[in-house]
Design a protein around this nucleic acid. Structure first.
Ligand SMILES: [Mn+2]
Ligand SMILES: [Mn+2]
Ligand SMILES: [Mn+2]
Ligand SMILES: [Mn+2]
Lengths: 219, 219
DNA sequence: ATTAAAGTTTAGGTTTGCCTAAATAAATTT
DNA sequence: AAATTTATTTAGGCAAACCTAAACTTTAAT
């Protein structure tokens, strides 16, 4: 099929173009891929011959429909492996990238199907990024701030808007990470804090400050 | 470190030499690696320069101590991934090879440590082959035929001596596969059959015929 | 509108890992 | 022991993916 190098180029084009829409520059690619612009030109000629990109010399490159399909497949694999590394092998979210970067190139349809099943069909990766479906669709989930949930409502943590170690340690202590299931148990009107149950079990009271920094998607 | 091609050569030399002892021929390698003898000669010169093999032109090749260390590391990775694929992703033992052949080349010490932990430090792979330890030791476990176990004794299935579909389907039905924990519950002297508990739960009665075809190692 | 600067491509080279064909060494026959 | 067959290596090439240096386009500045 496609080589590891080709796959990395396709993924980089996808990311730089913001989902395949805008045209991407040679230097842009050379920077994200840590290669020289001359090498990028070489590869673009090759990807163009394979009809994976629309390439107009001196005027940038864009993925074809087929190119986008391939890109989403690689991203799906990358993010599923990231979930595996964090949830099953207890990697931290900042340790997963290098390894997922390698695993995303393993070729086997069955493998990725079974991995997805094993992980319970996750919809977001440990960085809160959405995982493309098997059909190659990337649906951006509607994200709501935790503070906005009503009593009884559930959500899955998809993003935290503060990366200071103190805050991340706090989240760690109460057992909240990306992918955690939350449910609002009660509202405390006095200071707008909420009682939240974590992963269907123990509940904690979170201050309005904290509630504003956590985002969830529908479960 | 080492390229995928180099790693595949090292592993092939290890296997053909029967654990690193005998010298291996160029044509032997070319057959197992599906390349031409001329390509093998090329690579042997390279591996020799890297001190991974002792290579005497026209007289075969052997792994150095360092080469053996590398070989055992790759084999460890290969077999751990095979266990993962079978036990966690429900691959069958004949579906795992191609995928493990790719995964064995992923570079990350942490990954393989955590994988080993996640799998519960397995000692044999789904084909019954021993998994080298982290220290690079390959201890052949003592194998006993299931028929020879006394009451109360436990064992882990490591090999079955009949690969006819009917027999494998039978094992599948009663829940026995490589890696399954067994314990003798009772002996039935009348026909030398045994009552065996499978994975610490339900027990079945196995005929002496079947008992002679299953081999176990100490748990 | 020129000119200068920045971005991009082409030309020519390198390394890795493979190939075929030819040369050479080792093992077998006669 | 010489001749033949088989095994292996060397020579010369090719494709992939990178590189540097030089040439060429586009864009920005004068
Ligand atoms: Mn990658
Ligand atoms: Mn990610
Ligand atoms: Mn391999
Ligand atoms: Mn195996």
């Amino acid at each position: 099929m496609h080589s590891t190098a080709e796959e990395n180029y396709i993924k980089a084009i996808y990311k730089l173009s913001g989902g395949g829409t805008n045209a991407v520059s040679t230097t842009g690619l050379s920077e994200t891929l840590q290669t020289k612009p001359a090498s990028v030109s070489d590869m673009l000629r090759k990807l163009s011959a394979k009809d994976l990109v629309h390439y107009v010399k001196y005027h940038g490159v864009q993925l074809t429909a087929e190119g986008q399909r391939v890109a989403l497949k690689i991203i799906r694999k990358h993010r599923l492996w990231e979930v595996f590394l964090v949830q099953k092998l207890h990697f931290t979210w900042d340790e997963v990238h290098e390894v997922a970067e390698q695993m995303e190139h393993v070729k086997s349809e069955l493998l990725i199907q079974r991995l997805d099943e094993f992980l319970g069909h996750p919809r977001i990766d440990p960085h809160g990024d959405p995982i493309p479906t098997e059909a190659g669709e990337l649906r951006e989930e509607e994200q709501r701030v935790l503070a906005s949930l009503a009593i009884e409502q559930k959500g899955v943590v998809c993003r935290v808007k503060d990366s200071q170690p103190a805050f991340l340690q706090y989240l760690n202590r109460v057992g909240i990470q990306i992918g955690t299931q939350l449910q609002v148990v009660d509202k405390i009107p006095y200071d707008n804090s909420l009682e939240i149950s974590i992963n269907k079990s123990k509940s904690v009271i979170l201050s309005s400050d904290v509630l504003e920094k956590i985002f969830v998607i529908n479960p």
